[in-house]
Design a protein around this nucleic acid. Structure first.
Length: 269
DNA sequence: ACGTGATCCTGGAAGC
DNA sequence: TGCTTCCAGGATCACG
């Protein structure tokens, strides 16, 4: 479910409810997520949450002892609820905050994760990530330089976290469409000029999706339960056999790197 | 070093 | 209606 915009929307949603408040209790109902939920997160009990930040698709609940790191995987959802709210299936983790507020993680597929990063340490998981797409560290020049030796499809190249973080399956298809680049094209064959356009489109697509509250396809919801509205603005993702808005050619679907990919064969070359 | 495919898990939708 | 098959927003790991 969540790509970077959905994670950012979750971050914005939970922050006002938990920032500058103390963690009172942590309840782990299912320790077996992608990795076992570490016992060390209990050392945050009684500590104040001093920041809620995001790195790639990881959320960091920061305290002076360190950060609880959450990843939503494919199907994870975060909700802020009163702590006496009844549990439903797949409610794996509660971070209970003072005043009866509870940050609750629900994740049917359990591809999500809860990790621990002690203060002053850099978690191995976050250490080797590429730049954030919405910062100046990411641009077309970077894409061009990194791609010179890459024979792989450009769609796989931009979804590689070492290239840039946070570009998942939906927004990869969308940004390639807007840049007029075929997702199947080998990364090394694309000009600098086109990479500049692609980087710009990655930024605008992600930023616009955040503004719209993310994309709700099946089960994404904002922290307050509202859907995201970006699905209404998707040009190609999930639109196989629909007509391209620009040229009225049928949108094609093709599997690249085991992931379904959508593009207009006329507009994207 | 690089690129590809298997893999973790559950639920909803589609197919028969 | 009910059973089976396929597919899904991610990302690590093993292997050629």
């Amino acid at each position: 479910m969540p790509e970077l915009p959905e994670v950012e929307v979750s971050r914005l949603g939970i922050t006002p409810h938990i920032l500058n408040r103390r963690i009172e209790k942590i309840i782990v109902r299912q320790r077996q997520l992608r990795w076992p939920v570490p016992q060390e997160i209990d050392c945050t009990l009684g500590l104040e949450i001093i920041a809620v930040t995001r790195r790639a698709k990881y959320l960091l609940i920061e305290t002076e002892a360190g950060a609880i790191i959450l990843h939503l995987g494919m199907s994870g959802k975060l909700r802020v609820v009163p702590s006496n709210t009844p549990i439903v299936k797949h409610d794996h983790l509660d971070i209970c905050i003072e005043d009866g507020v509870c940050l609750r993680l629900n994740d049917p597929r359990r591809f999500g994760a809860c990790l621990w990063q002690a203060a002053g340490e850099s978690s191995g998981m976050l250490a080797h990530l590429g730049p954030e797409p919405l910062t100046d560290d990411f641009d077309g020049e970077r894409l061009f330089q990194l791609s010179r030796t890459k024979t792989q499809a450009v769609k796989n190249f931009i979804m590689d976290n070492k290239t840039v973080v946070g570009v998942g399956n939906i927004y990869a298809s969308e940004s390639l469409y807007l840049a007029g680049i075929s997702p199947l094209r080998s990364a090394k064959t694309i000009s600098k000029k086109r990479y500049v356009l692609l980087a710009e489109n990655i930024k605008t697509v992600l930023a616009r999706a955040i503004e719209q509250g993310g994309t709700t396809l099946k089960d994404f919801a904002q922290v307050d339960g509202q859907p995201g509205y970006f699905a209404q603005e998707l040009f190609v993702y999930g639109r196989k056999d629909d007509l391209c808005i620009h040229c009225e050619t049928e949108i094609k679907a093709v599997v690249i790197g085991q992931r379904n990919s959508f593009y207009c064969p006329q507009c994207q070359t």
